[in-house]
Design a binder for these strands. Structure first.
Lengths: 260, 260
DNA sequence: ACATGAACATACTGTAGAGTATGTTGTCAA
DNA sequence: TTGACAACATACTCTACAGTATGTTCATGT
């Protein structure tokens, strides 16, 4: 149970911390914890570990059906630890939400300014989006829930500040796609009627894996890549493109300057 | 608040009762209730009214964040009435779930056996699906939640019987689409790689309105029809169809034999 | 015309879980 | 080395409901 293949998230054991804050540059490798209690400087790692557990729980039963005790149990801990890092369940949720947004933002960013025809840029961005969605599925699921909660005006409230900020982030993300769509149409490469409906349909397609994707332990990175490629293909076709060449993405934007 | 345009659900005031049972053939028009208490034979209507309120609440906050008191309040009633008709919150949810499934099943059924090329049958079925989704949005949202709960093994349990039945229904529905897809491909009209991914993508598109559609009070039936047509267009394009002629659907399968 | 039971409303109980208060263990700076 | 504080664990409180028990109103068969 709870198996995890290599390409899936396990950010508390990786070098990528999206929260900034102290401890963000630590622990390149997972060190077996010596003591029961963690060092002060690792608070960033601790928060990320909590968020991963929370994301998995939220994904499984949704926000309100998830108890803090369950989140704690999932990472072999207790309430105390969670409430030491987060003031409330809502704050934890919002942090997962924001982190998920940051992840996918950073995933597509390298491809937004490429010197390519708009359609090809679109292809690249969509591909990057889908790959990120698959890798960080629990987080993106929480993002979906968050968007839904905004839409329905639900939400524990009280943290309207962070909420509004996240809403603006979401809009900014969406706007990037709107822009590329308009450019691609101007270049005569794609076609749609109502751009909002078109964009929504594209999003439904490329976010599909959030709902229907189930990791199989025998599938390789290439399998995942093919799967993502197919999602992109359908999303692009939907816009009236008949040309079938694959998306152009770098193997993986590498942050480490280390030599292989 | 809580405005409702003509084409939206209000089944307790319509002749269509999907639960069978006594009272299913009653009350063609909404009669202002004379008394505080309802007639015995109207239990079917009462249940449908409860289900509508429940569907709206479930759609707004999800299953576990919805309280029975809230559902009751929404229809200007109290807990007592809900628990008189349903043994538990889970049973209520499942009834909404099943009713939603029945609705969309009945919506597409008339088009499944049409003597047409598979693509055109597909077009008709998709169109009928989208139109139904829009008209019965809260119910279809609950269906989505139900499918999710099945997927994650969540669910109040105890009612495994009804649960398994609903799962089979869902599969049967999906199978209809699988069949049409295979036929259309055999006829050389559409194209896909992995049929599961293709089908999932199609479903994401045509179920999109469950998520992003918001009823505007100035939009007419024709507006809705155009919107649905556009959704179908994208879903069809996604399968490699370039031909743009619209779906062929009867105005609305009419159950009443009455003269206009 | 009355008795029975359906269709509710009202009043209560029990509990899960969010949040808190406090105790315990280790770190680290001086 | 020690004391102050971060990082937790443990034990508690308090409230929002799910579910129940009971009371009230009316319809309907006899």
């Amino acid at each position: 149970m709870n198996r995890k293949t290599a390409w899936q998230i396990s950010f508390h054991a990786s070098a990528e911390l999206h929260n900034g804050g102290p401890g963000a540059h630590r622990a390149m490798t997972t060190v077996a914890r010596s003591s029961r209690y963690r060092r002060q400087s690792d608070t960033g790692l601790s928060r990320m570990e909590i968020m991963e557990g929370a994301a998995l729980c939220f994904e499984a039963h949704g926000y309100s059906a998830t108890s803090i005790d369950e989140v704690a149990a999932r990472i072999g801990s207790t309430k105390g630890r969670v409430y030491h890092h987060y003031a409330s369940k809502a704050e934890l949720f919002l942090d997962v939400y924001r982190t998920g947004m940051t992840m996918i933002f950073e995933a597509i960013e390298p491809y937004l300014e490429a010197e390519l025809p708009a359609v090809d840029r679109l292809r690249s961005v969509l591909k990057a989006h889908v790959l990120c969605v698959i890798r960080t599925k629990p987080f993106q699921n929480v993002v979906s829930q968050g968007v839904d909660m905004l839409r329905h005006g639900t939400m524990p409230a009280k943290e309207h500040a962070e909420l509004a900020h996240l809403a603006r982030l979401r809009d900014a993300y969406s706007d990037h796609f709107l822009t590329v769509l308009e450019q691609a149409r101007a270049e005569g490469a794609i076609d749609y009627r109502n751009i909002k409906i078109a964009l929504n349909s594209v999003f439904m397609c490329i976010n599909g894996p959030i709902v229907w994707f189930t990791p199989r332990d025998n599938q390789s990175l290439e399998d995942i890549d093919l799967l993502a490629e197919e999602c992109v293909l359908y999303a692009i076709r939907l816009l009236g493109v008949t040309d079938e060449r694959p998306a152009r993405t770098h193997p993986r934007p590498t942050h480490e300057g280390a030599t292989a």
